[in-house]
């Protein structure tokens, strides 16, 4: 095998590996739990509005109340969220956030976003036992008995 061909083949292999990593990156699915429950960050309490609509990545906007949680399946890291406050003082908030690649289920706190809290508090890893915990803590244990949400959640359309 000539060195030129060796270089080209190695380059091809490398390109394939890079491609695979990139596909993984953009294709990894996450389950987002959009949560309007009040949260306490650094002593401050954030609350959501009375009635809002939430749209993630251009999907159909969902109505949400004050203390609800809904499921959205997305893929990739970068996401766009549009919150339209309907009740009292209509405003529209559009933000971008990232979900770390290896985080399967993430809790997105609407009050944190609406209240302009620091971005690192917007998205936290969700573990089942975490319902009452402050989402400010990140838990990175693998093999944890986290109960992932079933992939075939029929509540939301998954087709663009």
């Amino acid at each position: 095998m000539s060195s030129r061909s060796l270089i080209q083949r190695s380059a091809l292999l490398f390109a394939l590996l890079v491609l695979s990593a990139w596909l993984f990156y953009i294709g990894k699915a996450h389950t987002l739990l959009i949560d309007t429950n009040a949260v306490t960050l650094d002593g401050r309490e954030f609350k959501s509005a009375e009635a809002i609509t939430v749209s993630v990545d251009g999907k159909t906007p969902e109505d949400m109340g004050r203390a609800e949680r809904i499921l959205v399946s997305v893929s990739g890291q970068q996401h766009r969220i549009v919150i339209e406050v309907v009740s009292g003082g209509a405003r529209k908030v559009e933000k971008r956030f990232a979900v770390p690649t290896f985080m399967d289920s993430a809790l997105v706190s609407i009050p944190a976003i609406l209240g302009d809290a620091a971005p690192e508090h917007w998205v936290t890893k969700f573990t089942a036992a975490d319902r009452e915990d402050t989402p400010a803590e990140q838990m990175q244990h693998e093999g944890d008995a986290a109960l992932p949400t079933p992939p075939d959640a029929k509540s939301l359309p998954s087709k663009p």
């Binding site: 491609l19 596909l23 993984f24 953009i26 294709g27 699915a29 893929s75 399967d104 992939p151």
Partner: peptide, 11 residues
């Protein structure tokens, strides 16, 4: 691994 959509198929 939870890779979905077209990237999932390609992968």
């Amino acid at each position: 691994w939870g890779v979905v959509g077209l990237p999932g198929l390609l992968l």
